[in-house]
Design a protein around this nucleic acid. Sequence first.
DNA 1: TTGTGTGAACTTGTTCACAGCA
DNA 2: TGCTGTGAACAAGTTCACACAA
Lengths: 253, 253
Amino acid sequence: MATGRTHRPATRSRGIPEATVARLPLYLRALTALSERSVPTVSSEELAAAAGVNSAKLRKDFSYLGSYGTRGVGYDVEYLVYQISRELGLTQDWPVVIVGIGNLGAALANYGGFASRGFRVAALIDADPAMAGKPVAGIPVQHTDDLEKIIDENGVSIGVIATPAGAAQQVCDRLVAAGVTSILNFAPTVLSVPDGVDVRKVDLSIELQILAFHEQRKAGEEAEAAGESEAVIQTPKESGKGPDGDVPAVMPA
Amino acid sequence: MATGRTHRPATRSRGIPEATVARLPLYLRALTALSERSVPTVSSEELAAAAGVNSAKLRKDFSYLGSYGTRGVGYDVEYLVYQISRELGLTQDWPVVIVGIGNLGAALANYGGFASRGFRVAALIDADPAMAGKPVAGIPVQHTDDLEKIIDENGVSIGVIATPAGAAQQVCDRLVAAGVTSILNFAPTVLSVPDGVDVRKVDLSIELQILAFHEQRKAGEEAEAAGESEAVIQTPKESGKGPDGDVPAVMPA
DNA sequence: TTGTGTGAACTTGTTCACAGCA
DNA sequence: TGCTGTGAACAAGTTCACACAA
């Protein structure tokens, strides 16, 4: 983890900002829907609405890819679908393995959104010998022992970890050693990986906690709207060095 | 959707930057682990390593909450756990409903990470009458018809949508109408909600697409390292007004 | 006339580096 | 002396507003 270089080789990969990259799949989804309805062209305004962003942002994003629109007209849907797909690397096939076939792993295996985007579930792997051979989503589960072989034979470079937290780092290490360079982690742990390996994490409980934060804030605002004046929203820092402020006496031994 | 005000009442909620809020659950998790090992204090350096961030960022984040550390010593683990929990609103109980009990919904219902963080699965809801009454994760599934009643009776303000994309907006509308003000959306659609309602989305396929982008880039860099000189990483803009650049002739009808 | 493409202003987020407290 | 807390510098991301191409 504590290697000298920055984790990602460059903050902007090939000149396209991360924030833009993260939105490209959103645009792609909206464009695919339009394409299916045989809509030939869209304006930035329409597409932005469909993708849930504002049009200035969308145009800026597209400007990093090149000048693919026509002034006064808009964007050619099919052409943009192709350009974004290419930019995201979805014009090629990406075999992925899912490790940890519990509830979540099974859900992922069954998730239709992968196949339609150039991702192919090449194998399902689980540590439970009782699972071995059992088909999930039509794919027989294989045992962890064969992990390296499976990665190698299928040319897998993207791995999905859906194991319990305790097993995640170990699985991660084996995946990386076997040649996987991108990992999608569902286990609630921080994974250490060598330079050059990308990790993205999805943590369900973290998302809920962020919602809870805002939810709590809303509740506070309501109370405030009812009685108190404006000074209710005071920053905790204001009570800075004070004896206690609104901090309950919980300071332990 | 297109209301005058900005979507979120304020960009910084109660003075704490969004980016910081998003990291608090990470710190909390690391702290909880330390707490379980009865570690009394941590330095910003240690805690940062455990949470996978750098120490400067962590200290800055904590500075928004107040001055909870001791110079020359570090942070009291238990005290910080409490402060962050309180800040995130996790000292209270949050009943949540999960709508759409397919593979993913079931996985979420079984997910242990919720209960341990103040979230309680108050009800499971599905549109399939055949599911009604069947217990998932020990909780009987209820029919969508009763959605409003369930929300109301349980005082639910956070809803999780794990339905197919087609049903998501409709479910969302009903949740919101019934009083839900925070939604965690797993369906691959953009949801429109009125002002004051928070939506967070988790899209598995989007995460993979982002990984694919970086994966592709890596492959490109390898090729480059083999033969070409440095000038290979040229920004697409450099070929700006040029005839074609590296764009293949795919422009459709 | 319409809607893209983009410099420039602005906002948010990150990192640096060090003063100052325990 | 050691580590927090934080201003100040920097970087990334967003929004504005308008020139300009079709």
